[in-house]
Design a protein around this nucleic acid. Structure first.
Lengths: 147, 147
DNA sequence: AATAGATAGTATAGTATTAAACTATTATGT
DNA sequence: ACATAATAGTTTAATACTATACTATCTATT
């Protein structure tokens, strides 16, 4: 009975999680639309990863933002099309592409990163460091339990 | 600085959340595949809602499982195609369709619901009721903060 | 009664995700 | 040296999601 109850709570947590994701996306997309930028939230996630560390391979990006490698192909195609990133073969390992920001891609940082930080800051308003950490740990444990 | 740090923690929480969702999906899909059923995790979510409450309208289903109504059209088209649900006009409000499980749709419950419960039970192993509730509350607050 | 506002569901176009299979390349084991 | 296993990225097909606009219908207001 306690297990059933915990399971149902986990279900509710899963629902809360989906809604949070959806709202995050909408928050950023609204800004992007206001400013008539031709990118999406998902592309922003890739850019954010590259702003932090440029010139890494696709698998590293995928690992960082929790996406499947097949999705990376699609997203990077779109970013390349918009001249925000370039793919370059990796001389050290021919299986890899290294993904580099273009000048345009770099220039977007000063506008877009503050929006993202603004969102995360607003989201975490009134929440304590400790509580956020505890929740993250719980969610990670939950994921590990079904690995 | 504390805000920056909290924002980054929120970012990490967002990542954990995506991974949890992805794993949940894979867990169930593996079972579905083993048993050669012609449905997806997303369809299962709809079915689970209807097992609990049959004959509700599309908007209610969408609200329950946190999806956009436009997504419901697509998913229900697929469920109807598989003869798992029917759409019926609502005599009391012509804007609505009422969605009913077919016999087949009902029959799937005894196989699929235990899998879902098994997953949630496994996921919540070693986690306390209180911690799950606290995390759910935190995530709901986080979502509300960016509404 | 008429009008304005809100709602449910669909259509559309584009975006994104996923599993599986594949090719080319690298790493590992014998 | 050779064979096998593992890996990165791409392809394919299907699924799913989203914002926007639309139509039909209902509700609220005057």
């Amino acid at each position: 009975m306690a297990n059933k109850s915990k399971a149902l709570l986990a279900l509710e947590l899963g629902r809360a999680v989906i809604e949070m994701r959806s709202r995050s996306r909408q928050f950023i997309q609204a800004r992007i639309k206001e400013n008539q930028l031709n990118i999406t939230y998902e592309m922003l996630e890739v850019l954010m990863c590259l702003w932090e560390k440029d010139g890494i391979n696709q698998q590293e990006i995928a690992d960082n933002i929790i996406k499947e490698k097949a999705s990376m192909t699609y997203l990077l195609d779109n970013l390349v099309k918009r001249n925000l990133v370039n793919r370059m073969p990796d001389g050290n390992d021919r299986r890899n592409n290294l993904i580099h920001l273009t000048t345009q891609g770099k220039d977007l940082q000063e506008k877009l990163l503050p929006w993202a930080m603004e969102m995360y800051t607003a989201a975490s308003k009134d929440l304590t460091l400790e509580d956020i950490i505890a929740s993250t740990q719980l969610i990670k444990q939950l994921t590990k339990n079904i690995q």
